[in-house]
Design a protein around this nucleic acid. Structure first.
Lengths: 198, 198
DNA sequence: ACCTGAACACCGTTCAAGT
DNA sequence: ACCTGAACACCGTTCAAGT
């Protein structure tokens, strides 16, 4: 009988638990989700789960860290483009659709609320945000050199403004049920254009 | 000995409890604040509080409804102005300072997260948001008639975009400790100008 | 090693008893 | 009428006991 831990099983269980947690969090939010809810969804007993996550908090942190992956394709597009403003306006429909998914917006806002109290969640989200902001800033800086982007503001200021606009979009659907992303696509893109072009 | 309730006392107690709750919420957030925390801060016993608020939820809802008052001065400015774009850019420093107060941003995000699960909180915030959006939209519509505001987008679409920008500003400080509102004042105002002017 | 379920501590809410 | 504090139910976490 093996007495050494099985890393394969551990990894599998963590994924299984995180997937279960994501379902529960989407339905009920972080704080109304019960450990037993997650256990049931994951098919484990109450105590069993604690072998893989020390606390509920750890599950939330791990969940927040997973968001990071979703940025990769956007970052790649920004790195490879030779017209950053066009790249951003091209991304807009993608952003709008993702953000208008109510589940996504809810979890994003909930994670942000959590971040303001929980430094580990904050770190995970901040790193995420920082990565994307940097990618935008670098692309815009290249655009400034090429004369495609206005030079009256620093590239990182412009990038931060773009991010603020995006995060405003993310939470829009929560309070306004009549909000439709399509209606704002053209508007947002023209705004980006006017903000960024010389 | 009086057997009829004393409405004066009731009103006083509610204010006293809400004030205590606000302090606790700012420190710990809605969910990490304990009923006993609020009771202690308000100088009441555990059971005593329940004479004035039936549940913790009711306290949160009442708290969310209070935010509404803060909009009044902004709305008045928008109603009285004869240059809505100038009015909005004039408001920006005020908005930026209020939003860059971390406590304010935290509570705003927390309330929004709460709204996505709690329909009464949602209603309170939505009404608040609606009022302000309407005020901006009306002002912009007047500006469109007067030729000060572009006519290529509907006034309410423009107003919603302005609101999204503002709400992006509100949450900015949570993840980015280096964020300073002053640095964005000029940028935001130029953005508003470019967005709204013909 | 991995898992279970009973047990414990904590927090929202209630209620009998006080003034 | 208004208030208190003990009591109850629920949930995060632990741990002795099973395989």
């Amino acid at each position: 009988m093996a007495r050494t831990p099985n890393p394969k099983l551990g990894a599998r269980r963590r994924i299984q638990i995180l997937r279960a947690a994501a379902t529960c969090f989407t339905r009920k939010g972080f704080h109304q989700t019960t450990m037993v809810d997650i256990c049931t969804a994951a098919g484990l007993s109450a105590g069993g789960l604690y072998r893989y996550f020390k606390t509920k908090d750890d599950i939330i942190v791990a969940f927040a860290e997973e968001e990071r992956i979703e940025n990769e394709p956007l970052i790649r597009v920004l790195q490879e483009t030779n017209d950053p403003v066009a790249a951003l306006t091209g991304i807009t429909p993608h952003i709008l659709v993702a953000f208008s998914d109510l589940d996504y917006g809810r979890l994003a806002v909930e994670a942000l609320a959590e971040a303001s109290r929980n430094s580990r969640v904050k770190q995970a989200l901040a790193r995420n945000e920082e990565e994307l902001t940097q990618a935008i800033a670098h692309a815009l800086a290249r655009g400034q050199s090429a004369g495609q982007v206005r030079k009256t503001f620093a590239a990182d200021q412009l990038a931060t403004t773009v991010m603020m606009l995006y995060s405003g979009l993310a939470s829009r659907g929560i309070l306004d049920p009549a909000y439709t992303p399509r209606a704002y696509e053209q508007l947002v893109n023209e705004l980006l254009d006017r903000l960024l072009r010389p």
